[in-house]
Amino acid sequence: MSTSIMNTNFVLLLLVGAFVGAASGRLGSFMVLKRMSLVGDALSHVALPGIAVAITFGFHPMVGALLALLSAVLGIWYLGEHSEVYPEALVGVVFTASLAVGILLTPEPELFEALFGNIEKMVPVDALVVLAAASAIFMATRAISKKLLLSIVSDELATSGGVDMPKLNLIYLLLVGFVVALGVKFLGTLLTGALVIVPAAAAKNLAKNMQSYWRLSSLFGVISASAGILIAKFFTIPSGPAVVLVAVGLFLASYIFKERKKPSPGRP
């Protein structure tokens, strides 16, 4: 590999990918367990109108994406707390609508980048902010992991054990919103959801227990993002699809491994 590729700036970008990948993987492990994978995916689409508005009014696209995501997260949280059935159809309608509106609003030159991501456009200041934010998200997720897991096992055990479920769910969804906002720059609004879901889904195929599930989710997130960014640089293709395809490759490999190791029918 030539030295021109491996300059300081590029190393920083690789680090960004790795950190966002780790945070996404760890958060995604719960998204998969909570059967909310598609919500995570759809959520990333909401970032697009936010980016469009930001470009139109001349402020930072990531701020626009973040604001749009935060309002979507609050909406999801409110519906989850106040309605008996999870309003899946409503989520589908609102999120595809925001994608459609976003595509119409985003100026043509920026549209491709907003949809599929381009990490090359990231300046060092952005990169440092993203590194700090991704670390904070990772730590925050670790801190609430026990409570989140207990709430997945039984919300009654969690609540009777003193866990404030509405608050916990809100914190969790906010973290998902934050991590999606971070990923949007190099994955694009169409594909960011994949970095939350696919590494965690791959990890679940291989995990023996929760500790290994969490470790593998983060590790696969790191591998997907950094390998994807390297491949994108090498072949001069958009980083978003490259990252997602690496993640999908990991998923396929883990799935094949799991199927081959499958015990005979009956209890293990």
Partner: peptide, 26 residues
Amino acid sequence: RIGYVPQKLSVGRDLPLTVFEFLKFK
């Protein structure tokens, strides 16, 4: 101090949580 034993849990076989990890919550 109240202990509660629910009728069942809402977990599938695919949840990688072991008995040990579950009891370690407490």
